[in-house]
Write a protein that binds this DNA or RNA. Structure first.
Length: 554
RNA sequence: GGGCUUGUGGCCUAGCCAGGACAUGGCGUCAGCCUCCUAAGCUGAAUGCCGGGGGUUCAAAUCCCCCCAAGCCCGCCA
């Protein structure tokens, strides 16, 4: 609804000014839309911007297709206000099930996220990747795109060689009830310590990596067993976070099916290719001075070569290829993106996110210095359970536990997705355990309140008459939801959705406080109930897109 | 040393790409609101030279240049 009005105002302004760009912005407190085009015209028309704005306002006010839009000049600014018909239509659309779903798109999208090395559990840094990626995935589906979500599973890296060696030589048993990925991490940390004491083991690690590259069945099997075990635990954590993947892509498959060899053969014909003891690409012509090494002197392929094969495959099978990567991948991401076009393949769109560190410094799986996602979930769940128990002591334990689990995921996902990815953050327990404003549970709470009102109201006729400040602000905000979904997928910025949902909850809470629903009468009552239903529906759709449960009661 | 990213009240944070009307919101502090639809809520108050310095513009948190600080990267690791 907002988009239609925006287009209409834009067309009218373009017609009246002859300008292509009419400098439309959100009007903030002043208007629903505003234009500063008068400043731009002041020079060419040699008149004061105030005068131009006044003239334009008069001209537009006389247009026949203005509808319920009101236009006025406030100094040099042209302000547009939307009227009753807009409010009515906005609320009407927002009560439809599935509100915000955009028309079906033909472009097939593949989105890769998380893809953490399977040598230990996901930690609080990895889940920033998961949550940004999964929220984007949900937004793409909401925006009508056919989508596949992938996890690129490294089953042939050095870390995995170390784990497999650890399993074979250290004899570490899995503890009772120990989660698979935590067990793998314990073996990995122990193996690293053992290697530090006896540097001779490095040779054995190198030997295993060569065997895997050659496809030695026994070694491949050992690697895969270790990776599968760890992935089992990682999948459990992902499921708890409401993150999901359609496909796990095994890195070694690109060697096994010959894609890596084919890529390197194609690369050899490039003028930028160099073959001495290693095989590498010279990217200095695009400003990357670093050698992009694809094959080692011992003949084995480097990660970069497998990555090229993987992205070539994705580029051929999908129209948009999106990767979510940590900021530490910026250089190799740039190398990958610069190299693919050289062989006529499409580079991916990459969303980088900066690091999450601990107050005492950066995290390290190898050193065993990290807060695992599982530990975070456990701590937050315990706090959530306390909260639920103190607020709703009458509920059965089972139900309280279910609410606590939902609140936990809401708190964790929202805390992470609300921050722009470019900002590095320091993990803070106090913030993680805060369920007040600007939190996921705060938005869930607004939704539960709306549900509670509707439940008490029973049957009612829909009506759309709005006059109070809070009703109008709410109706106008509802209209923007589809635009936000569109913007999130266009700009790959999921935090916009987090901000939108919080603003909607803020507006609803103010409305809830000032405008009684159940105690009002006649058309006011039914109009407000209709508005509450529209808010309930839009919050539910927003929360779902954020991967958060829209609880009916909490 | 080079590259990328960030720097917004005591703390956290949006706005910056597409420059415009009093810079968004939260935490914390202080003062209020539960005979009234769930107080995970609402209201009010105090707190800002938008890292620093130049420039462009009628107009700069936003664009350009320089500087400072922090994080990350600069492996025949992944």
């Amino acid at each position: 609804m907002f988009r239609e009005k925006y287009r209409q105002v834009e067309r009218m302004l373009q017609a009246c000014t002859g300008e292509e760009d009419v400098l439309l912005t959100g009007g903030g407190d002043h208007a629903d839309l505003a234009s500063t085009v008068a400043f731009k015209l002041a020079k060419q028309r040699k008149k004061a911007p105030q005068q131009i704005a006044a003239d334009l306002a008069a001209e537009i006010a006389a247009l026949p297709d203005l509808g319920d839009i009101r236009v006025e000049a406030t100094g040099p600014y042209l302000n547009f206000h939307f009227g009753d018909a807009y409010l009515r239509a906005s609320v009407q659309r927002a009560i439809e099930p599935g509100y915000g779903k955009l028309p079906r798109r033909p472009e097939r999208v593949v989105l890769e996220h998380t893809s953490a090395n399977p040598n230990g559990p996901l930690h609080v840094g990895h889940i920033r990747n998961t949550i940004i990626g999964d929220t984007l995935a949900r937004a793409f589906r909401k925006a009508g795109y056919p989508l596949e979500v992938q996890y690129y599973l490294n089953d042939m890296g050095r870390q995995i060689a170390i784990v497999s060696w650890g399993f074979d030589t250290l004899g570490i048993e899995r503890n009772e009830g120990e989660k698979a990925d935590h067990y793998v991490a314990r073996v990995y940390v122990a193996a690293n310590r053992a290697m530090e004491k006896d540097p001779g083991t490095v040779t054995e690690i190198d030997r295993r990596m060569q065997l895997v590259e050659r496809g030695d069945a026994e070694t491949v099997q050992k690697f895969r067993a270790a990776v599968s075990l760890c992935a089992e635990g990682i999948k459990e954590t992902l499921a708890q976070l409401h993150g999901s993947h359609d496909r796990f892509v095994w890195e070694s498959d690109f060697i096994r099916i010959g894609d890596v060899d084919r890529i390197i053969d194609r690369m050899k014909r490039l003028p930028q290719a160099h073959e001495d003891e290693t095989f590498w690409i010279d990217l200095s012509e695009v400003g990357i001075e670093k050698k992009y090494i694809l094959r080692r002197s011992d003949g084995t392929s480097v990660y970069s070569a497998r990555d090229l094969a993987y992205h070539t495959w994705k580029g051929r099978n999908y129209d948009r290829v999106i990767d979510i990567l940590g900021a530490d991948h910026k250089l190799i991401g740039a190398q990958l993106s610069a190299t693919l076009p050289l062989i006529g393949e499409n580079p991916p769109e990459i969303v980088y996110f900066e690091f999450v560190s601990l107050p005492e410094g950066s995290m390290s799986t190898r050193a065993g210095k990290f807060i695992s996602a599982d530990e975070l979930i456990d701590e937050v769940t315990a706090k959530a359970m306390d909260e639920v128990t103190s607020r709703r002591p009458e509920l059965p334990g089972e139900e309280r536990a279910a609410i606590a689990r939902s609140v936990t995921i809401a708190a964790i996902r929202y805390d992470i997705v609300k921050i722009i990815p470019e900002k590095s953050t320091v993990f803070d327990w106090k913030e993680a355990l805060d369920f007040e404003r600007q939190s996921g549970p705060y938005i869930q709470y607004a939704h539960a309140r709306a549900c509670s009102i509707l439940e008490k109201a029973g049957e009612f006729e829909t009506a759309f008459e709005y006059s109070t400040e809070h009703e109008i602000a709410l109706a106008k905000h509802l209209a923007r939801f589809p635009v936000v979904v569109e913007q999130v997928v266009a700009e790959l910025r999921p935090h916009l959705l987090a901000a939108y949902a919080r603003e909607l909850a803020d507006l609803f809470n103010a409305f809830y406080h000032y405008d009684p629903v159940l105690r009002s009468e006649d058309v006011t009552r039914s109009s407000r109930l209709t508005l509450v239903d529209a808010v309930r529906n839009t919050l539910q759709e927003s929360l779902e897109t954020l991967g958060i449960d829209a609880l009916r009661s909490m």
